[in-house]
Design a protein around this nucleic acid. Structure first.
Lengths: 212, 212
DNA sequence: CAGACTTTGTGCCACTTTTCACAAAGAATA
DNA sequence: TATTCTTTGTGAAAAGTGGCACAAAGTCTG
């Protein structure tokens, strides 16, 4: 059963879970792959195939029981476990993350925040007090933090990544527009907001060209 | 020359441009595909193939002239044109975007912000004053806004998207964890921060399982 | 309970994207 | 200038991903 599961599948599984959770709240207890696909802008075949990586959850002729599917997805995706997260960089973006309630709901607890800027150290957002980055190497193992979020300017990103990894972090979500070089056993996910927008703008450029 | 260019290629072209810009600043005027690949965590072949979609920019035996490649990439990616952007939702994330300096540098001008919450209307971030969402349909065409950013709770996202599209927006960057249904001629890009983190956490779950 | 209908699970095919590998082009050297 | 070395550009092979289509399994109806 251990065929390699593409990362896109995992991402979509979270989308299905989100949708199914809505359905159970609305007291809907059955859904077909076609309906679920419609609600998520995906094809029915894709829905079935994605689920197929992990087992058989449906009933021929009837579809999926939402309660069972919800439970199954939560188990697959590890929603019963929680993880401790640190945010490095307490600027606008870092603060927005600290204040975002959606994460705790999903088992992702931000338990520490760091910054170099003396003016930001000591600042409190919700129940987190921003610490000096010098305390990072002690705090990460002490608080059993396994995910680090980098929300600092591009120039500092690699240095912060190195510190986080040395302190024992296993995954990094990188908001800095910079390419991080990390060891193989560390997982990095880049989220580059300006690049997303730039890619959209390229679409507009292309469209303008077409008009001519 | 009009073979279809995969979207991933465009995204990487922005990465190359970012890197090349650094190099020119450092007075480095030549780079090989191998080096550029190393700096961006991509293979040399990928670099060459991506560039190959748009022409021939290198010199056999020598590599690429960074100044020329920079100019070429800027032209390809439409960095000479600028676009007007609106942010809907002036919560933490929306405000962070309003304050983010990186966008203007890249030709993306946030020229308006909207919110439903009376307490946020009138709030000023940099030189933008948050307006009532009721003014959206007038402001979008008046300010020639072609990109909309949705930074509102999931429940309101579809409604906001409909308003934006009706007002004439052509692209949407959606931060809300919701699936948007839009017409074919509108381009949507989803950025779901909690899903990114959840995907990372799945990686940790998997790793835990492996240990057993 | 028989037959019609619905929907799953999945093998197979088509398409997309990446990697390989090498001839051709130019640089460097002596 | 001839020879060697480096690096590009690009067809062709490989890998990855999504969609089709249909047998099998179950539901529903009269």
């Amino acid at each position: 059963m251990n065929k390699k599961v593409p990362e896109g599948v995992i991402s979509r599984l979270f989308i299905y879970l989100r949708e199914i959770s809505e359905l159970t709240k609305m007291n809907i207890h059955t859904i077909s792959s076609a309906e679920l696909g419609e609600r998520t802008n995906l094809s029915d075949a894709q829905v079935r195939k994605d689920l197929g990586y992990f087992g058989q959850f449906g009933v021929s002729g009837a579809g999926y029981n939402t309660d069972e599917l919800k439970a199954a997805l939560e188990k697959i995706l590890g929603k019963d476990s929680t993880w401790n997260v640190a945010v490095v960089g307490a600027g606008h973006l870092g603060s927005a993350l600290l204040a975002y309630p959606g994460l705790k709901e999903r088992g992702l607890n931000i338990v520490a925040a760091f910054d170099v800027d003396a003016r930001k150290i000591g600042k409190q957002v919700k129940d987190i007090v921003v610490q000096s980055i010098d305390e990072l190497s002690r705090a990460i193992p002490a608080k059993k933090i396994s995910i680090g979020i980098i929300a600092v300017p591009a120039k500092e990103a690699q240095g912060v990544a190195d510190k986080l990894i040395k302190a024992g972090v296993e995954c990094i979500l990188n908001f800095a527009p910079a390419t991080l070089i990390v060891p193989d056993n560390v997982k990095v996910k880049d989220v580059d907001l300006s690049r997303e927008l730039e890619t959209l703008s390229y679409f507009l450029v292309k469209r303008e060209e077409m008009k001519k």
